[in-house]
Each structure stands twice: as structure tokens, then as C-alpha cells.
Amino acid sequence: MATRQQIKESGMVNLVTIQLEEVIQGEVDKVHLRKRMIKSGVSANLDLEKDKWRSLVVMLNMEEQGAHNIIEETLQKELSSENKSIPLSFPKKCIKRARLSNG
């Protein structure tokens, strides 16, 4: 059975039945591998990402900047509320009681 490379070299690209399952499976595996690389690449190259962020935000016009700021402000509020945690020394039953008394 001819390989795809041999067929290409001999110019018989069309109308040739070839066994390609292995090649194709290999290529499918690479797609999955590549997908993982794309995802991990975001945090791996941090400096590059920071530059990309700066250049993108600088490029925004006033209207876009306005929309961006509203979203960023909400994100910051969200992050600050998530980072705060209830002090461990404060007993849970007190919180419950306080909530009840607060209506």
C-alpha cells in the first residue's frame, strides 16, 4: 500500500485508495494536544499576555472604553467580595442570630 507522500511524489493524488487511518488518527490526536497547549499557553507566557492586554485596552475608543470600564468595575467588586472571608473567630451561630435579628 502506497503512503500518501509516495502518491504525492508520483503525482497520483486523485483516485487512489490508500490506507490513511493511522495518519488521520495521529492528526486527530494532535488537535487534542494542541487544544491543551492553547489553554495552558495563556498563563505560561505572562509578559506577552500583559503587553497584549495593554495594547488592546489602549486601542479602545471612548465608547468602548466606557463599556470596558463598567465591566472591569463589576469584576473588581466581584473579586473584592470573593476575597473577603468571614473571620474564623466569629462563631457561626452568632452570624445566624445576627441575620435573624437584622430581619
Binding site: 492586554w53 486601542m59 468602548e64 463599556a67 469584576l75
Partner: peptide
């Protein structure tokens, strides 16, 4: 472009 900038802001 705005969506890209917002996405980058979240990652930043």
C-alpha cells in the same frame, strides 16, 4: 475588539 479587550482584562 471590545470583547477581546474585556477577555484580556479578565486574564490580566
Amino acid at each position: 475588539m471590545l470583547i477581546s479587550a474585556v477577555t484580556e482584562t479578565f486574564a490580566h
